[in-house]
């Protein structure tokens, strides 16, 4: 099986793969940054206690979590034109990823904030610190350590999610594999190479996540 593996073909198509890889990186980075902003805003609304902010955000999060990402992508890809909004596929894809990961990030941040011991908050209250001061000095610094590892986990998920954009013709890494397969009909060389690249990204991100897990956690000492 492996004796027939044609490495030369892979080198011939390397520019295509690298171009796809570049787009995968770019899309992942932009979508992740936007998703972080979305997640922070959504989380702030969620914990605000104001009903008109809280309930729409909860609905948004539950809808995202209960429906497949591919359906969300198709919803935007096929739906936006019917509203007269013409957006290039790559941007449609980024918006879908932003909304999807944003919901999960909102929940990750919320979990991080609730993980800070209630006693800390009471100590802050007792010295007269107001809500924003408690957030800034006591809660957020400690929540950070608990939040970063799952955020990196979500980053890994997001990179894999970008592969679905190949189905709406975005020229990222998976689509490079599809293109090579349709041109040369050598699916083994095409998709195993693609899989290899994804594994590299995965191992880098995973190493980062494991490292951050060790470094960033503060615990109350008794």
């Amino acid at each position: 099986m492996l004796a027939n593996f044609n490495f030369r073909i892979i080198f011939e198509y390397l520019p295509l793969f690298l171009n796809g890889l570049k787009f995968t990186f770019l899309i992942s980075l932009v979508a992740l940054a936007l998703a972080l902003v979305t997640g922070i805003i959504a989380c702030a609304c969620r914990i605000s206690g104001l009903k008109f902010l809280k309930y729409p955000v909860i609905a948004y999060i539950e809808v995202i979590r209960s429906t497949p990402l591919l359906v969300q992508i198709y919803f935007l890809y096929f739906g936006l034109p019917t509203l007269g909004i013409r957006v290039p596929e790559i941007q449609t894809g980024i918006i879908a990823l932003m909304l999807n990961s944003g919901a999960y990030i909102a929940e990750i941040i919320r979990a991080g904030i609730s993980s800070v011991d209630q006693g800390q908050i009471e100590a802050g209250q007792s010295s007269g610190l107001n809500y924003f001061q408690r957030m800034r000095f006591i809660i957020l610094p400690q929540a950070l350590g608990v939040t970063v590892p799952p955020l990196l986990g979500q980053a890994i998920v997001l990179v894999k999610d970008t592969a679905l954009l190949s189905l709406i013709s975005v020229m990222e890494l998976t689509r490079s594999g599809q293109t090579m397969t349709s041109e040369r009909f050598m699916p083994s060389e095409a998709f195993l190479t693609v899989a290899f690249f994804y594994m590299c990204i995965y191992f880098c991100l995973k190493a980062l996540a494991d490292w951050s897990q060790k470094k960033l956690i503060f615990r109350e000492a008794y």
Binding site: K160, Q178, P187, S188, F191, A195, Y198, M199, I201
Partner: peptide, 23 residues
């Protein structure tokens, strides 16, 4: 497990559907 968690599911589907026949 690393392979299953490190690659997108759509790529895994392509591998099963297009590459397994070659093997």
């Amino acid at each position: 497990v690393a392979f299953a968690r490190g690659t997108p599911f759509v790529v895994q589907i392509f591998i099963v559907f297009f590459i397994f026949p070659e093997w």
